[in-house]
């Protein structure tokens, strides 16, 4: 860890100003010299590991009063970005009408971390790639652009099979983001030019040739809220992992269905633990929409979801596993008694 200045932002303007003031023009957000601090469960970790070296920390926790509301409405659900994961996971209305959200949060991290971590910080959490998190490895295109990728032919069991490039195969580790992307959430961003909204699906950027750029946010931008349209009581988050709790997904599926008289009117499928960014499996959804559900259909949807997947030495199993997880999540969603 290196010395840094610490400032508490007591209102959004102050936060935005503090975060943009120190921002160097060409730095992507991940390398900005000024970083917001919410729950701190990723940032502090990475600072201790010398991976992130911000010169200034802007503590945005004082904004929680305005930015942590959980507002279930008739038309949509609005979640403040500073709401704690644990509060959202255990909220009655969310458990009833958005089980995919509640479970994606409940199955993430540990109780202690969920009590600290915020929704906004959660979607921004960075990859767990060991080569990224250990600065003694020089080859990391995400950390040292242009230096190569040590994971590509290294120990890559936990790495991505979808959305990869020849520059980076680091997995996006989160769970909640899969629920958001599946449900067509929008994200509210407060920045230098006020507050704007964009589809959550536009927040993250696949690595391509610039794995160091992880989102479309600019220095000075802060996520203030998420808005989820509609209600999805028939929804499931299924997560396969090495241990029963406190572990990242080897493969996860966020599934939401609208089934009427045995026909799937709408289907949402997103994948966790297998892709470089929050991953919407629209090809799977296309297979499902307008069809009567059976196991064969679930299998075709799962196959479509992973049609483009590319495995490496240690992670090829994720393709077969991911398909089985999608199949089972779909079956569970169909079987739900609403």
């Amino acid at each position: 860890m290196r010395p840094f200045s610490y400032q508490r932002a007591t209102d959004p303007d102050m936060a935005v100003q503090a975060l943009s003031a120190a921002a160097a023009a060409n730095n992507p957000l991940t390398r900005a010299t000024s970083q917001p601090l919410a729950g701190g469960t990723t940032l502090i970790d990475l600072m201790k590991l010398d991976v992130m070296r911000p010169a200034a920390i802007v503590d945005i926790n004082p904004l929680a009063q305005g930015w942590s509301a959980i507002e279930p409405g008739g038309e949509h659900l609005r979640l403040g970005a500073l709401a704690k994961m644990s509060d959202v996971a255990t909220h009655d209305d969310i458990q009833r009408n958005y089980p995919v959200i509640a479970n994606s949060l409940k199955l993430a991290a540990s109780a202690q971390l969920r009590n600290m971590a915020t929704l906004g910080g959660n979607v921004m959490q960075r990859t767990r790639c060991n080569y990224f998190r250990d600065v003694s490895y020089e080859n990391c295109n995400k950390r040292n652009p242009g230096s190569g990728c040590a994971a590509m032919d290294g120990v890559n069991r936990m790495h991505a099979v979808l959305g990869t490039s020849d520059q980076c195969i680091a997995t996006y580790p989160g769970d909640f983001a899969q629920a958001l992307i599946a449900l067509d959430a929008t994200v509210e961003v407060t920045g230098r030019s006020g507050t704007r909204s964009m589809p959550f699906a536009d927040l993250h950027k696949a690595p391509g040739n610039t794995p160091e750029i992880e989102t479309t946010l600019q220095p000075g931008d802060l996520i203030s809220a998420f808005v989820i349209p509609g209600r999805w009581p028939r929804s499931v988050y299924l997560k396969a992992r090495d241990r029963q709790s406190y572990e990242f997904a080897l493969s996860a599926a966020a599934v939401a269905l609208d089934v009427q008289d045995g026909t799937i009117r709408d289907a949402r499928v997103a994948l966790g633990g297998v892709a470089t960014v929050p991953w919407r499996a629209r090809e799977a959804e296309a297979q499902l929409k307008g069809q009567k559900f059976d196991d064969g259909l679930a299998q075709r949807a799962a196959d479509a979801a992973f049609a483009e997947a590319k495995g490496r030495q240690h992670n090829s199993f994720k393709i077969a596993l991911g398909k089985r997880v999608v199949v089972r999540a779909l079956q569970q969603a169909v079987m739900m008694e609403i």
Binding site: M158, Q244, S245
Partner: peptide, 10 residues
């Protein structure tokens, strides 16, 4: 975090 040991739930 990556050298796994059991948690209580295990």
């Amino acid at each position: 975090a990556d050298y796994l040991v059991p948690v209580n739930a295990d």
